[in-house]
Design a protein around this nucleic acid. Sequence first.
DNA 1: TTGCTGAGTATGGAAAAGTAAACTCAGATG
DNA 2: CATCTGAGTTTACTTTTCCATACTCAGCAA
Lengths: 169, 169
Amino acid sequence: MDATTEALQDAGVDPRLDRDASNCSIARTLEVVGEKWTILILREVYYGSSRFSEFERVLGCPRNLLAARLRMLVEEGILATETYKEPGSRSRPKYVITPKGVDLVPAVMGLLQWGDRYRADPEGPAMLSRHRGCGAHVDAQIRCDRGHAVQPEDIESVPGPAFRLRSAE
Amino acid sequence: MDATTEALQDAGVDPRLDRDASNCSIARTLEVVGEKWTILILREVYYGSSRFSEFERVLGCPRNLLAARLRMLVEEGILATETYKEPGSRSRPKYVITPKGVDLVPAVMGLLQWGDRYRADPEGPAMLSRHRGCGAHVDAQIRCDRGHAVQPEDIESVPGPAFRLRSAE
DNA sequence: TTGCTGAGTATGGAAAAGTAAACTCAGATG
DNA sequence: CATCTGAGTTTACTTTTCCATACTCAGCAA
């Protein structure tokens, strides 16, 4: 424990409990993708859907919520709209993933593999993820920048540049 | 496209759109950890909190929801209860992570790193994750079983053993 | 025996999600 | 031109979830 931390604790302030927990990347990510349906919409985009009617058909979610979630995802830059036109129909918007949306794949893979392990049907998962080309099973894992595989218990969380204590109440 | 898939499509059935999307490991994981506060409670457990009052203090979430979420996490085997006793106080329950809970770390790391990239303060993240010992920055990445780093666009999703079509409506 | 503390439980109002149905409107059809 | 069509939006209503706060309860202590 360094001198600053010790001084704080002497004053009854615990950096772990008195930090500003709203200033957290997990909380902020959940502000964007933490509502019901949002992650499932992204899953369908990853699986190849792009049209309003496709999402509605496969998810069975309320149309007003689907419209609201798509609007939010586009505003956030996770999806983008393009137009498509079926012969004999007018042109309509479709939704495609952006690089910002692609960067959510590791998080979604993490949820997927936990479900595969603990909540899948007895016979196994409904979908399998393979490495295109090599064909091997794919999963999310934790690595450090030196390329070592990291066990969760070997992750050390330390205050970063934007660490803040909660303002006085 | 194989013969079966082709035959299905001739019958107007699209495996992608007409599959049973509730039979999905992502959806099932979200049934457990998709409610508000649940992931944030786990975050605090990873950071070292274990007591009801600690969660309440740092999260600022309603006590009834906190109690409900903790109960759910224990029922699901993601947390377990132990007892602790402060000198001069009666013994009380505390909450500790189980191996099943540790297996959610990759998913949470995925959310964390997306937030670090797109939603952090200008000066950087509030918390940093380091590999204990080597000290290098840690993140969630996608790998195949042969150890190759996999780009999201190189993930191929194919029907697995429990793939099901939606039952006729 | 009165008060204190940590860990909940209970409750009433606010917000979000779910449901169903009506509305919009560009292009196809007649 | 008038009408139809259907993806997408809006609206109105019900149900569920969330939130804030007050209350309970068991053991310790003065």
